[in-house]
């Protein structure tokens, strides 16, 4: 009896009003942030005629996927009219190896810096960290020269190379901070058991690393997929990533501006990163905090 009484007491009218007020404010913010997506989605499903005559926030009177089809395979980027499709695949074959290579190298780097301390390990680590904070604009020219010397200027391998180099600072940081929390005695035990450098990495550290691998993949994939600056600087006609193509589609319309196609193209370009967040988002949060909570 007393329990219930206390319980209801704690939920006095004032508390309830506050609670609902909070929900209301949160709801309003959510709506506010969803607004652009809503406009993009509805606009992409309208015909040009309807966009011209209707209101911006109105639902489409007649749903048509024509704009999506055009954005995917018919929209013009400059003189070519193949839509986003070829560039989307460019981004895919660029992002997957770039993410994989930078994650693997970052894991190895972090493993060495955290668990196989050599003389100057901390110095090397701070140099790598420094790499995280160099603005990309600064390195454009030297990198262009470098790619030219290596003979991979304007190619997808060239872009992969650039993204691996600039991802390494972050991936190393992630893995190093994760591996630093793993007791050094584990490595010692494995050494006494007879395992070597790679065996310990493969059999003991990698199986422990799932959360941080997910974090790194999300981070790197988002960075590389969404990158525009390197994409526009170090690519040529056939090798441009989807972000550059999206820019070209939006900027190269002649006559009528096809808002519906632009919106559909923008959503297509953003879809993979959204997907990665939805699929792996919970691991992302878990991974970011894993090192700190683990006893």
């Amino acid at each position: 009896m007393t329990d219930t009484a206390l319980h209801t007491n704690s939920r006095s009218p004032g508390v309830i009003v506050l609670r609902w007020g909070l929900f209301l404010i949160l709801g309003l913010f959510a709506l506010f942030y969803l607004m652009p997506l809503f406009v993009m989605l509805t606009t992409s499903l309208k015909s040009l005629e309807e966009i011209r005559t209707g209101s911006l926030v109105a639902l489409p009177r007649e749903v048509t996927f024509e704009a999506w089809r055009t954005a995917w395979s018919g929209a013009c980027t400059g003189i070519q009219c193949e839509g986003l499709r070829p560039y989307f695949w460019n981004s895919v074959i660029l992002a997957i190896p770039a993410v994989a290579i930078s994650t693997i190298l970052g894991a190895m780097n972090g493993y060495v810096i955290a668990q196989w301390k050599f003389k100057g390990a901390n110095f090397v680590f701070s140099l790598l960290l420094f790499g995280c904070f160099i603005p990309f604009q600064v390195v454009l020219l030297p990198m262009a020269r470098m790619l030219g010397l290596l003979g991979i200027a304007g190619t997808i391998p060239g872009l992969i190379f650039v993204h691996v180099i600039y991802g390494l600072g972050f991936t190393t940081l992630f893995f190093r901070n994760y591996y630093v929390t793993i007791p050094a005695e584990l490595v010692k035990a494995a050494k006494v058991d007879g395992a070597g450098f790679f065996r310990i990495f493969w059999s003991i550290f990698l199986p422990l690393s799932l959360p941080i691998i997910v974090v790194t993949i999300i981070w790197q994939f988002t960075q590389i997929w969404n990158d525009f600056l390197f994409g526009v600087s170090f690519s040529q006609a056939g090798t441009q990533p989807v972000t550059v193509a999206l820019n070209n589609i939006v900027n190269s319309t002649t006559g009528v501006k096809e808002y519906n196609v632009d919106m559909a193209a923008a959503i297509i370009a953003a879809l993979p990163t959204l997907l990665v967040y939805v699929v792996a988002g919970k691991y992302f949060i878990r991974g970011l905090t894993a090192g700190s909570v683990k006893g």
């Binding site: 007791p183 005695e185 584990l186 010692k188 035990a189 494995a190 050494k191 006494v192 058991d193 007879g194 395992a195 059999s203 003991i204 199986p207 422990l208």
Partner: peptide, 29 residues
């Protein structure tokens, strides 16, 4: 190197391999 010294060691924190079963821990060496 440690692996060729014909020694075995028990650590303060036990240093068991966390992702392996007890059997795998024992047979890893």
């Amino acid at each position: 190197s440690p692996k060729d010294r014909d020694i075995a060691m028990v650590f303060q924190s036990y240093a068991l391999y966390p992702t392996m079963s007890v059997a795998k821990n024992i047979t890893f060496g």
